[in-house]
Computed example of a mutant assay.
Amino acid sequence: MAGAATIHPNWAQHIPTRITDGYSIEITAKDCEALRTAASSLAPETPIAITFLPGETIDARIDAAKLVRDLGFEPMSHLSARRIASYEELEQTIRLSVEEAGVQRMFLVAGDPPVPAGPFEDTLSLLRTGLFDAHGVKAIGIAGHPEGHPVMDEDACWAALTMKCAEVSNRGMAPLIVTQFGFDAARVLDWLIALRERGIDAPVRIGVPGPAGIKTLLRFATHCGVGASAAVLAKYGISLSRLLGAAGPDRLVGDIAAGLRPGHGPVRLHFYPFGGLARTAEWIGQHRANQN
């Protein structure tokens, strides 16, 4: 199930020389000052995802995408289907993102609200408007869930992912899968094999938590439905009996790098800083330097 278009020419090498080659990172519109500060520590042209938070205006999101572009990075704006109030709001957001910030890729999720604010129920309903391809968006990011989805069983989750990849490809855009963060490298690697066995060859960005306080990591894990059993956390380097201090993704990233094989397909890392953009950028820089 190859994409009809691609903006990932450097992914021909499935296993990167360094696991942090070609990484991406996530921010919110509120992180603009932090991004300016951390910009010199990030690799040029790094894809930077801009999350869709409730209460933020279209202008704030567009301004964040413009800043990402102006600083020499590649913006990937998020859209949450159930938070979009109208077709007109969707069209305006896509059009301005492309015209003012040069956005070429967008990331689509259904979103958390149980009742949609407007006419869009899920990612497919956004795609089927035809607005993304009409405005020249080249790639669409969709969510992957190696540890399962909070409201869908495994079969439904695979079926939805397959349909979304096909819809993106059929519209002449490139599908890109970005996974929820997790703590278990083995679970991610097994999921990648299952993905490829289903004929889905889209590039995957594996979600990795940046270095953060242990309580912060556990709070986000609970909110996102991420598995955080004592055994899994121990492999990550966290003990539930000692919640003070911070933890970094060294062991997780090392285990992913050690386990990657050609059969896992094209893979890169996607970092979730959890409010610590500078700390995450510093960690990435140190890790890359140590791999030289």
Rank of each mutant, 00 (worst) to 15 (best):
Q180M: 10
A60R: 03
A64Y: 02
A246G: 07
R36I: 11
L42G: 09
L131V: 06
V226C: 09
V109N: 05
R242D: 15
S125K: 11
P203E: 02
L124T: 15
M163A: 13
A12L: 14
L90S: 05
F120E: 10
G72D: 11
L71R: 08
I48W: 00
L244W: 01
S239V: 14
F271R: 07
D63P: 03
F120K: 13
I284Q: 03
I206E: 03
A5P: 07
G148P: 15
G254T: 10
L35K: 07
I193R: 07
N170C: 01
P175C: 05
G275L: 11
M173N: 04
S77F: 00
E88D: 13
A174W: 08
A85T: 15
P209E: 03
G102Q: 10
R198H: 09
H78P: 05
I214H: 01
P209D: 01
A159D: 15
L217D: 05
A65F: 02
I19C: 05
G118P: 04
T51K: 08
Q92I: 13
P113N: 04
P54Q: 08
V208T: 03
A101G: 04
V103T: 15
A186D: 14
R95K: 14
D153A: 01
L42C: 08
P54D: 10
A231Y: 03
T162D: 13
D133W: 04
H287V: 09
T179Y: 02
I84D: 06
G207L: 08
D112H: 14
F220H: 06
H223W: 00
I94H: 04
V178F: 10
F52H: 06
A2I: 03
F220N: 09
A228C: 07
A159T: 15
A228K: 10
L53D: 12
A60Y: 00
P203W: 02
L240T: 13
P175S: 06
R83Y: 00
A34R: 13
K164L: 08
T20E: 06
W158V: 12
I193W: 02
R95S: 13
L277P: 03
A12F: 10
L252E: 10
G207A: 07
K235R: 15
P16L: 04
G148E: 11
E121W: 01
L189M: 12
M76T: 12
A258M: 11
L131C: 01
N170F: 00
T20C: 04
V68L: 02
E99N: 12
R83S: 00
A212V: 13
A85L: 14
M76E: 13
T20M: 04
L244H: 05
G265D: 13
I238S: 09
L79D: 06
L195K: 12
P249C: 01
A234C: 10
E33N: 06
I94N: 02
G245A: 01
G285N: 10
I214F: 00
Q92S: 12
D59R: 04
A134P: 01
R219Y: 09
H287M: 12
A160M: 15
F132I: 12
A230P: 05
V232D: 07
S41P: 03
H264A: 02
L161R: 12
A289H: 10
V208R: 01
P47L: 06
E282T: 13
T37H: 01
L96W: 05
H223Y: 01
G254H: 07
A234G: 08
L218M: 09
L217T: 02
G245H: 00
A185W: 04
D70G: 06
H264E: 05
R219P: 11
D190I: 07
G237T: 11
Q92C: 13
